[in-house]
């Protein structure tokens, strides 16, 4: 019992335990929210809000609406939960960028990832996992496209980053 508790707090959990826990929480999110867990549609609202602040977008999303959006707290929760998980095991530290090439790859990768997720209506969570979990054909097609994209990305990674 003590050993189980230690692994639960300190980690790492076996991958299949993670999958079961995430699956259970994913279903709970659907029950609470009446719609599935997603990440990027909330990021999009914040991006539009930020763009308006910088004078790049005409429409205005009031910040009070964003602060009362469920998606905001799910996303914030993921960040805080990971922080807590690292702290609980005494494994938190600030991990600075060690090589400049990873800064470029992060910025370019983020740009591609954000654009792709929004035109396809979802990221790995909202589009792929919960698209498939919703028994939508789009989810399966998206998964196939993501796999092919990953293959191209892997070639780029081997060429420029290794």
């Amino acid at each position: 019992m003590k050993k189980i508790w230690r692994t639960a707090v300190h980690g790492p959990w076996p991958y299949w335990v993670g999958a079961m826990v995430l699956g259970g929480l994913n279903i709970l999110v659907l029950l609470v929210r009446k719609r599935p867990w997603g990440v990027t549609s909330n990021l999009q609202d914040w991006a539009v809000w930020l763009a308006h602040l910088l004078g790049l977008a005409s429409e205005r999303i009031p910040v009070s609406q964003l602060l009362l959006a469920e998606g905001t707290y799910l996303n914030l929760g993921v960040v805080l939960g990971a922080l807590w998980a690292a702290l609980a095991a005494s494994q938190w530290r600030f991990r600075p960028l060690r090589q400049r090439k990873f800064g470029f790859s992060a910025l370019i990768g983020g740009l591609f990832l954000g654009y792709g997720a929004r035109i396809a209506y979802g990221c790995n969570v909202g589009g792929l996992l919960n698209g498939i979990a919703s028994s939508s054909l789009t989810g399966w097609v998206f998964a196939l496209a993501v796999f092919l994209g990953t293959w191209i990305g892997a070639k780029i990674l081997l060429k420029f980053l290794v």
Binding site: R95, F102, L161
Partner: peptide
């Protein structure tokens, strides 16, 4: 040091 997955395994 500072390299992301999966470069260390490769």
């Amino acid at each position: 040091w500072g390299e992301m997955c999966p470069i260390p395994i490769i």
